[in-house]
Design a binder for these strands. Structure first.
Length: 347
DNA sequence: CATTGACCTGTCCTG
DNA sequence: GTGTCCAGGTCAATC
């Protein structure tokens, strides 16, 4: 029997103007987020925003708008959650009023929520122009690589996702994260026709429980089981309120945040930089993985070709080079080059 | 200090 | 069907 209760409440949806500065594919599937899935024959992206809202995003044919739909937006407790966009969007990001009969307050709220997650308050055209002027190689690549955005992501999810990423491949990372959500997260949306039940990412306090490590071992997490549990426990024990700690990390200078993060087991320089860039708004952070290492060797710092692998020294050198070349948003420039180098995005 | 292996596991690729 | 290598690193033990 089909339930009709949900259909009685209006679906929250609308359009967001992007000024051609957003490629969903290049942004959601370039290795910064691991939970976005392509549905409906490859037209719609479905994922979780702010760890509370199941959102479907669709790139419009005009290239200048995305359509959004909040799949679990009818829940009664919706506004009780502590979701507040951290940045006020620019005026041009206002939703259109094309779908009449809906609560404009809700529409505004959700378009702000999604714009914030996609960091649409940043004018990407200006950034691309600036980076292209300071680097011909970037300019050549960027013309075919528009709309790569650095997301503003949830702290805990970013932390544990990238702990999982060490010495690992994307396919397994995605599976492990999905397992974490199903086992320790809350149900956000039931019975999606293609994706099944969609869960939130677990609370840090949940991952700090003693049973977690042996359970994860059984689930095939390997040595990362201990990293995950011990990191969660460290945060709960030492910082009491994880949410507050992440805010402090965002406030303090990049180098200090990076240093503080590396005290967590399973968090080295690269993972710390990923968290700093993607969840703490430290856009000067340049995560250097083997991929970026190769880019640096071939495009910018040929003397590093003699290095077989990444050392602390070369790691620092590459980051500093990117910062000197691209400025305070170097991490974002790096994301564009990284994206261009991914196999799936090569022409 | 900078460098070098071991580390869990699923998968791809040979023989 | 077995064996091997490797994948978006980190840690700890040695130069």
């Amino acid at each position: 029997m089909r339930q009709t209760v949900k259909a009685l409440k209006p679906m929250i949806e609308g359009f967001i103007e992007t000024n051609g500065e957003l490629s969903l594919k290049r942004t959601l599937k370039s290795g910064q987020a691991f939970r976005w899935r392509l549905t409906n024959d490859g037209t719609d992206w479905v994922g979780v925003v702010r760890n509370t809202h199941v959102v479907q995003l669709t790139q419009q044919p005009d290239g200048k708008h995305i359509h959004y739909r909040v799949l679990n937006g009818h829940e009664d407790n919706d506004h009780n959650q502590e979701i507040k966009p951290t940045v006020k969007g620019r005026k041009r990001l206002k939703t259109s009023d094309e779908s009449d009969g809906e609560n404009p307050k809700d529409q505004y709220f959700y378009s702000q929520l999604i714009s914030d997650y996609l960091r649409l308050d940043v004018n990407l055209t200006d950034l691309y122009d600036k980076w292209s002027k300071s680097d011909d190689k970037f300019a050549a690549i960027a013309v075919n690589m528009s709309g790569v955005r650095v997301l503003r992501q949830n702290f805990a999810e970013t932390l544990f996702s990238f702990i999982c990423s060490s010495n690992n491949n994307i396919n397994r990372i995605e599976k492990m994260i999905e397992t974490l959500c199903q086992k320790y997260g809350k149900v956000l949306y039931e019975s999606h026709p293609e994706l099944g039940t969609i869960h939130s990412f677990p609370e840090i306090t949940r991952l700090a429980e003693e049973s977690v490590e042996p359970e994860l071992k059984k689930l095939g997490f390997g040595y990362r089981s201990a990293f995950i549990h011990r990191s969660a426990k460290t945060i709960c024990d030492e910082y009491k309120c994880p949410e507050k700690w992440s805010q402090e990390l965002a406030q303090m200078p990049y180098s200090e945040a990076r240093q503080a993060l590396q005290r967590l087991p399973g968090v080295g320089p690269k993972v710390a930089d990923c968290i700093a860039l993607m969840a703490l708004n430290h856009l000067e952070s340049v995560p250097v993985d083997v991929h970026v290492f190769k880019i640096a060797q071939h495009m910018y710092l040929p003397h590093l070709k003699k290095n077989k692998s990444l050392t602390h020294k070369s790691y620092q050198e590459i980051g500093d080079f990117f910062r000197s070349k691209f400025g305070p948003n170097a991490g974002w420039a790096q994301a564009v080059l990284f994206c261009a180098d991914l196999k799936q995005f090569k022409q």
